[in-house]
Design a protein around this nucleic acid. Structure first.
Lengths: 151, 151
DNA sequence: TTTCATGTAATAATAGAAGTTACATGAAAC
DNA sequence: GTTTCATGTAACTTCTATTATTACATGAAA
């Protein structure tokens, strides 16, 4: 099962923006996330709609954070990505007539709902500021040279 | 992100086996799970290696449960399927040199690890017998006619 | 010895995400 | 104003992982 890496990719991009004076182009962000500028624009479009980032066209254009780091939670970012399912397994089928299926769904559904709720709760409490602080700590601990290789 | 439905499909198949006198063929199970006999054999091969089911060749051959329902947990079934990842999102990247990435991984990793632990714990306590009981209750509540449509 | 069922390798089809191309839009620089 | 730079977005291609299918070997019972 292939896992969705958009959330961590976006976090990566947002932290770069936070540490960057002035707008960053899709091109530059694409290099950070080792992907393609169009993909970056597509992904960040969702965040823009939620007022997390802003974009400007033309000369000196690009992407900037639209709010302070303290005011951005993982939950919002997840929502901006279209709330992709958090769990890798299907737990509700499209065949509710079958009682066997119903029993299976009920049993799995409870466990899955709990796990999802836990993740949502965590996502709601973690802000980008917390991530940035963590980064600063690591940066201080390991020294500055070669600490970031552009990925 | 496409979700893995093998777990619920297998549970569906095992409950059918439990309610069936004598072995069930891959063909019959494939119809239940609306898939293909070879896929059924491939999937159940893992369960057979763990002693959850047995298979017999030739006339009157097919698949039977190798243990009582009380002695089969969701955790074992999950393991028999190769322990597919439970979460849909990637939380640890293959680029640990980047400190930004590290901070992101650390933040997400904690939340994800907790959710996974919760699911594993639940999987360990739910037996097939519990699922079968739930099915019986539904069956009794809705009456027998047309209760199961072969899916 | 025929029939039925599994065991398994090899290949094809599918679906979903990601990447790419192409061009329109708009803002600043010259 | 027109050139340059950057985003906005649609259309299309590639990539990749899963699932489905085909083909044939193995083994057990009728």
């Amino acid at each position: 099962m292939k896992r969705d890496s958009r959330l961590s990719a976006v976090l990566h991009a947002l932290l770069h923006m936070a540490h960057h004076k002035g707008p960053m182009t899709s091109e530059a962000l694409a290099q950070c996330m080792s992907t393609n500028p169009v993909v970056v624009r597509r992904t960040l479009a969702g965040l823009r709609e939620m007022g997390i980032v802003r974009s400007e066209k033309g000369h000196a254009g690009g992407w900037v954070l639209a709010r302070p780091l303290e005011a951005i939670t993982l939950a919002e970012i997840h929502e901006a990505l279209g709330e992709p399912g958090l769990l890798a397994m299907a737990h509700s089928s499209d065949n509710p007539q079958c009682l066997v299926e119903q029993a299976v769904n009920a049993a799995l559904g409870d466990a899955f709902a709990e796990a999802e709720a836990l993740l949502r709760e965590r996502f709601g409490t973690v802000t980008l500021a917390a991530l940035a602080d963590d980064f600063s700590r690591r940066f201080a601990a390991h020294g500055h040279a070669g600490a970031h290789n552009g990925s």
